[in-house]
Amino acid sequence: MDSPTGGRPIIALRGVSKTYKRDTIEVPVLAQLDLDVAEGEFLALMGPSGSGKSTILNLVSGIDSPTAGRVVVAGVDLGSLDQAALAAFRARHVGFIFQSYNLIPVLTAFQNVELPLLLTGLDRRQRKQHVLDVLGIVGLHGRSEHYPRQLSGGQEQRVAIARAIVSDPSLLVADEPTGDLDAASATEILDLLGRLNREFGKSVVMVTHDPRAAERAHRVLHLDKGVLVESVQRDRP
């Protein structure tokens, strides 16, 4: 399915199938999927559990590989990369936002955000500046020394978003980023994602069950049993 925005695709999936093997049983999750996501696009993926939404996120972020087909992200054919190269690809191009935040509980907000920068050549002073900058962007400048347990759910997710953007990746993948949040916090997080998309040009692929969250996207794809069944295009603000 082509990107209707017409921009240069940051994600291109061609004939992608994915089958999981549980013991001797093969479970097909995606079937012959074609999908383009344009640079700067905010895409929402919806559908029932097991429809393949999270699998698409895993494939485009290089933490899983397709059973068949090609996955090209930021001009890189992920099928050509080994595990080490995939790790380097993720560090450079992908920012992850998880439903349960996935912060390291024994590290402070600052240290959690700093983690991706440890994979770069930045020195300690440069890393500190970057971390403080992104904590400022997500509105947590004064919480840098707090541990995750000392933060609210919304604050934890903002730390996770700061961690996702600190190394300036071109693509953010968000797996139900508001799933564990109350309505007010969810709205804040969606506002933040929208801002990152608009002001910082980040491409966003978000899996969600929440129609209000999906409303923030430029395009909403509905999946069922591994097949795209509907695409809803929204006007860019």
Partner: peptide, 14 residues
């Protein structure tokens, strides 16, 4: 387990 997976997802090599 999830911490390790997160670190690997962030790009830390095995």
């Amino acid at each position: 387990s999830r911490e390790i997976a997160t670190l690997l997802a962030l790009g830390f090599p095995p």
